[in-house]
Design a protein around this nucleic acid. Sequence first.
DNA 1: TAGTGGTCTAGACCACTCC
DNA 2: GAGTGGTCTAGACCACTAA
Lengths: 249, 249
Amino acid sequence: MTPPSPFSPAPSDDRLPRYHRIRDALQSEIAAHTWRPGQPLPTETELAKNHGVSIGTVRKAVDSLVADGVLERFQGKGTFIRRPDFQSSLFRFFRHLSVDGTVRIPESRILKREETTMPAAVATAMNCSPGAAAIRLLRVRSLDGKPLLAEDIFLPRARFAPLLDIDPREFGDLLYPLYEQYCGVIVTSARETLSAEAATVRHAKLLELEPGAPVIVIERVALGLDRHPLEWRQSRGSADQFRYHVEIR
Amino acid sequence: MTPPSPFSPAPSDDRLPRYHRIRDALQSEIAAHTWRPGQPLPTETELAKNHGVSIGTVRKAVDSLVADGVLERFQGKGTFIRRPDFQSSLFRFFRHLSVDGTVRIPESRILKREETTMPAAVATAMNCSPGAAAIRLLRVRSLDGKPLLAEDIFLPRARFAPLLDIDPREFGDLLYPLYEQYCGVIVTSARETLSAEAATVRHAKLLELEPGAPVIVIERVALGLDRHPLEWRQSRGSADQFRYHVEIR
DNA sequence: TAGTGGTCTAGACCACTCC
DNA sequence: GAGTGGTCTAGACCACTAA
């Protein structure tokens, strides 16, 4: 079995509509970093010429990428790769972290990085085979020295191997920019399931709580552009002061 | 101040692009129940003729309504009003209610219906003036006789006055279909904020828990087609067995 | 076979940005 | 003023549905 590479151009079926094939083509160019964020894509007229279609067809392709949050258009300026802002998208759920309303990114400390295999439950959630090679990260995120979240993260080894070559102390406070930079992997959406439990001794220690104190568990499967699972993550934090905000539909 | 009627045609600014004005026009016709769910809208060619635009412009208007889940298109058949399925959209968050994975709608019992005014906190969330006329509902939702959720609901009186004429015992188990039927109001999206607290004596009694037991609080602002707040709701349930699932982005 | 939506063209003019 | 995306036209042909 060949491991899927994020850089291999999508084979884009010829039977697909043209605008769809153009979308796929643009998407692989984006994944290959043909255009850097901040630089504009070729103009729509140019793209139309390059792909041998009319401008309306190119617009439809770009429309769908804009709808998915991959591109941004500005009238009179151009079309740009969207800098995913982790503040507003996946991150705003932790607004509770800031009492004054400002968004603060908690410091991150990797406690452990190991090569292991996918546990059955994780494999099911990620739609991969149980026992597949995996990278596991354990980390604690804190604000002003106070631990807020204890996280247990599983990544498929095939896609995330480059992470094994970096010192975990240099991972920084956010993982998704790291994934993008070193593994060419972009997280665009996620599924989350919240539940509550009493803190185990281990988690109580990590979070500096009493064992048995109420804890919120957030289980997240992060998805890429193609809606395929990239990361499985379980975060635990004190139920006290907990706030989780979400827009539906 | 004239109370906004859900049936008054939107004034649709002339400076707006045509496809946007057509979208607005279609939307008010839908709100006025011009077409019943299950019956097709006029064909795109017809709509184009009616509005004096080309077919591409009509398509753009319909596109956006389809994207918002208001319409459904079927090639070769036509375009239809989408029957909102409360099971899958706003309701799936309560999947935890079903142990076996099947979706079950809890029974609903209205404990109280009163005419009151919007408390300051609710008014802020709903973007209306504090002290505005309101209808308040208190209800308990249970499964197999066991209380699961205690709910406190505020509705703007202007839009929901028809509810005052119905016996609360005949409200049924779901409110959103009721809103649609009696008030011509369609809930299409929502904002939710989750938090945790210890059960008060009152809530403990309603939920048959010990006072002080951990409770999850879900605060929801439900929005209509035009993204304006329609309903404010606070639901409380035992943190035990709690599961909340959501897709992000 | 007739009618529907799905895709696509090859332009046009407008609104906006930047120089 | 030159160049960008935003809107719009007036058609065309294709894929699918239903009688």
